[in-house]
Simulated scan of single mutants.
Amino acid sequence: MYVDNIRLINFRNYLNLNIELNKKLNIFVGNNAQGKTNLLESIYICANGKSYRTSKDRELINLQKSKGYIGLSLAKERFSKLIELKFERDVKKRIKVNKVEYNRVSELIGILNVVIFSPEDLRLVKEGPMERRAFLDGEISQIKPKYKYNLARYNKILMQRNNFLKNRLNSNFYNLLDVWDTQLSQVGSSIIIERVNFINKLAIISKDIHNKLTGGIEELDLKYLPSFDIDKLEIEEIQLKLKDMLQKNIEKDIQKGNTEYGPHRDDLDILINGISARTFGSQGQQRTAALSLKLAEVELIKNEIGEYPVLLLDDVFSELDLNRRKYLISTFKDIQTIITSTDDIDLTELKGIDKKVFYIRQGEVVLQEEG
């Protein structure tokens, strides 16, 4: 799949932009605060229905305007799609695909698949469990739309259970709590199984990529850290185990007003040569681990849906050493890649690769080189 055309009207600092992209490599060069990341953000929104930079849609609209628009033409192996999002201050955004209006953001998931890598992705390795759960949930949702539905359902049940824990006035408290526990364990077990399957597949691919990126010096491993022991359990057994943990922990949950067991407490351990990258890895090692995971994600999506996703690289290409850049360049021949950079990338490294090079200044985009 590839993005053929992107149209932006009053989106961030773009008042009226309409550009054709190359099927393979696209490079956008410009100083900071000129709109490079805004461009990548617009593509990401068309894939996920929301931004990765803000939870408030009104912030996507140009400050001087009341409405904004994103239009993206997507070409896939068997069909093409026009994805459109319209934004208006204090009004719910509207989503259309091929002029048909979608009522829910979840309907958009899976039409366009993207993988984004930016300097902020270091948080995936070095920050807390929430970052890694968000990574797992976002990526699994792209290839398994039902997972996103189950995740939303789980979070709703969890919120209701937590609210119920804080209010014990109901005379039928424990019987009603048992209802929440049954629902939570049913949906939670399906989330856990999907995460286990995803991590097992991702671990194999990322290990191979990391080995190549580091010249065989480092070995990357992934380990799922659930909130309770699930070793070799099937989904029905995990469901029973989770409900058992919830019921054994009821009094503590009541005291805290929170649910201590379930996939909302899980983590992913990223290991380099058997040692935690979060605790002991250097910044360079953490960056390489994050890059390995993102590139593994690209391959995993291809394996799952039969097509490569669009790869978005936000200001990271120039930070990589020659070996890592060469590895990235080797992927450009297979997938559409969109790179932003504050510096002119050494185009001699990209000789022979089909590409377009654009220059951005204050929301204006000029095609400088093609070939």
Rank of each mutant, 00 (worst) to 15 (best):
N22K: 02
R132W: 13
R265W: 12
F87Q: 05
N258G: 04
V316Y: 02
L151S: 07
Y261G: 01
I70Y: 01
G274N: 14
Y102N: 08
I193G: 04
P119I: 07
E260M: 11
R94V: 13
I230T: 08
V187D: 15
S330Y: 15
I199C: 10
I272P: 04
I235K: 15
E319D: 15
F332T: 05
K212S: 13
N22D: 14
S189W: 09
E127G: 04
L291V: 08
I272S: 05
E77H: 04
R133D: 11
R89E: 03
F79P: 11
L122A: 06
N258L: 14
I45R: 05
I360C: 00
C46N: 07
N150A: 07
K24Y: 13
G71I: 06
R89P: 01
K93S: 14
S118W: 00
L124H: 03
V125F: 01
S118C: 01
L322D: 09
I209W: 09
L82K: 11
V187I: 15
Q247L: 13
D4V: 03
I95N: 02
L74C: 12
S80W: 12
E319L: 09
L202W: 02
N32I: 00
Q336S: 00
L293D: 09
E234A: 11
R287D: 08
I335M: 13
N98F: 04
L225T: 15
R325L: 09
Q285G: 06
D57M: 10
R78G: 13
V357N: 06
E307D: 02
K355N: 10
T331N: 10
T340Y: 04
I335S: 05
K81L: 12
E120H: 03
P129W: 12
D266H: 11
K232S: 15
D314Y: 02
K148N: 01
A290K: 03
Y147K: 09
D343R: 08
E131L: 03
Q336F: 03
N167E: 13
K126H: 13
Q142N: 01
I235T: 15
R168Y: 05
K148T: 03
N249L: 09
I70G: 04
L165E: 05
D334A: 05
D181G: 03
L350T: 04
G216W: 12
E127Y: 08
K232Y: 14
L15E: 09
E236V: 02
L295F: 10
R361F: 05
S42G: 03
D315Y: 04
N163M: 10
